[in-house]
Amino acid sequence: MALKPAPNRASRPQAAAILFWVAVWQLAAFLVARMGLGFLLAGPWETLRVLAGMLPQAAFWGRIGFSAARILGGFALALVFGCLLAAASAACPPVLVLLRPVMQFVKATPVASIIILALLWVSSANLAVLISFLMVLPVIYAAVLEGIRRTDPALLEMARIFRLPFGRTLRAIWLPGVWPYLLQSCETGLGLCWKSGVAAEVIGLASGSIGEALYQAKIFLQTGELFAWTLVIILVSAAFEKLTLAVLRLAGRALGGGELTCTRN
C-alpha cells in the first residue's frame, strides 16, 4: 500500500528561495550589462524572451525530439539491460564476478573520456544513445541487484514450498521487492542520462541536437540562447522524469495486482 505524500510545508519557503535567486541573477545580469559585458550573462527576462522566440520554430521542437529520442533510447536500453544483467548476476555468481569490474570501470571513468573514446566507435548522431546507456546502466544494475538481494527470503521459501509458478513468484514476490529500488534508480538515471547525453552531443556536435545548439550559442556568444537551451534541458528532463516515473508506477500496479511498494507484515 502506497503511503500518501506528506503535505509539503516547505513549498512556500522553497518558492521564495527560487524567487530570491532569480532576483540575484537578474541583478547580476544588470550589473554586468552596465559594465558593457552583457554578452557574458543573460538575465532571466532575456532568457525567457529568447525562449519565447524559439518556441514557434519547428527546428526548436525538432532538436528536442532528436535529443529526447536518443537520450531516452539510451535510458530504455540501460533499463532493460540493467535489469537483465542484475537478474543474471543474482542467479549466477560468476556473472556477478565478471560484471563487477566492468561496472566499476564505467562508474569511475570520467564521462568526457568515455565520450571521446566512444566517438571512435559510433557516429556523433548516435553518440548520446551510447553515452546515456553507459551512464545509466551501472545505476540501474546496482539498484536492481540490491533489490533482488533484499527480497524477503521467507517469502521465497514459501514460493518454493508451494511450488508457485515462476510468473506468480515474479509478480507477487520479486517485483515488489525490487520495485522501490528500481524506481529510485530510474529517478537518478533520468537526470543523469540528460546531463551526460547533452554533454555527448556538445562534444560530438551531433547535427540537429540540443547539444549542437548549445555549442553554437556559446561560439557566437549568444548567451540568451545558451541560457534558454539550458532551461529547456532542465524542463524537458524534469518532464520526462515525471512522465517515466508515472508510467513505471502504473506498470507496477498492473504487474503486481496492487501497489507494489508496501510495508511488510
Binding site: M1, A154, L155, E157, M158, I161, F162, R163, L164, R168, A172, I173, P176, G256, G257, G258, E259, L260, T261, C262, T263, R264, N265
Partner: peptide
C-alpha cells in the same frame, strides 16, 4: 507429493489482498 505449510510467521505477500494471497497458491 506436493506440500503446503503454515509457518511460524504468516509469510503473506503484504501488497496483495487476502483473497489474492490465498489464490496465489
Amino acid at each position: 507429493g506436493r506440500l503446503a505449510a503454515v509457518f511460524q510467521e504468516d509469510r503473506l505477500c503484504p501488497q496483495l489482498n487476502a483473497v489474492a494471497n490465498v489464490a496465489l497458491a
